[in-house]
């Protein structure tokens, strides 16, 4: 089963609006009918995670976390998708948490291993970016300061 897990790259490909809408309508219809099947919930949740919209991804993670807590047989699988979701949200800490949960039980899982690499890469890049932002801010501040000083001198 875990071999079927999609690689993180697949999560980057969004569904079309129509497809997502179908999934969404199916999900809400089942809510109205009083019984939500795990599959519909997952479909919509995964569809949401595949979008590029943070709010929708968050919503998707919420749905998957619901499945995670309610349906033990799907827990391992879900932990991976939740990790992907957090990865897409750039919440690398939680992504790592869920991915490691899966790796704990299935150390040989290729998808989870590649996700771990991606997460680590993301963390380091964030570090550089943070550094860059700090540096940039410092530069801007310097320029502003310099111009201010110049003006006062004039």
């Amino acid at each position: 089963m875990p071999t079927e897990l999609p690689y993180a790259a697949e999560a980057e490909s969004s569904l079309s609006f129509e497809e997502l809408d179908v999934l969404k309508r199916q999900y809400y219809k089942e809510i109205e009918d009083g019984h939500v099947t795990t599959q519909s919930k997952f479909n919509y949740g995964w569809g949401l995670i595949k979008t590029q919209n943070n709010e929708m991804q968050t919503e998707g993670i919420k749905l998957l976390q619901e499945i995670y807590s309610a349906s033990p047989p799907h827990r391992r699988e879900c932990s991976y998708y939740i990790a992907v979701g957090y990865y897409k949200l750039k919440n690398y800490a939680n992504a790592k948490k869920f991915n490691d949960l899966l790796l704990q039980h299935e150390p040989g899982n290729m998808q989870a291993q590649s996700l771990r690499v991606l997460i680590e890469r993301g963390v380091t890049r964030d570090g550089y970016i943070g550094l860059g932002i700090v540096a940039g801010a410092a530069a801007v501040a310097g320029v502003v300061l310099a111009s201010v000083i110049k003006r006062t001198k004039k």
Binding site: T38, H74, R75, K97, L101, H105
Partner: peptide
């Protein structure tokens, strides 16, 4: 959630995986 067990209960029939579904 991370406290929850991922252990598979034995005897439970295999579901098709969610992504397959």
């Amino acid at each position: 959630l991370t406290q929850m067990s991922l252990d598979r209960s034995i005897g439970q029939e295999e579901h098709p995986s969610l992504i397959r579904g």
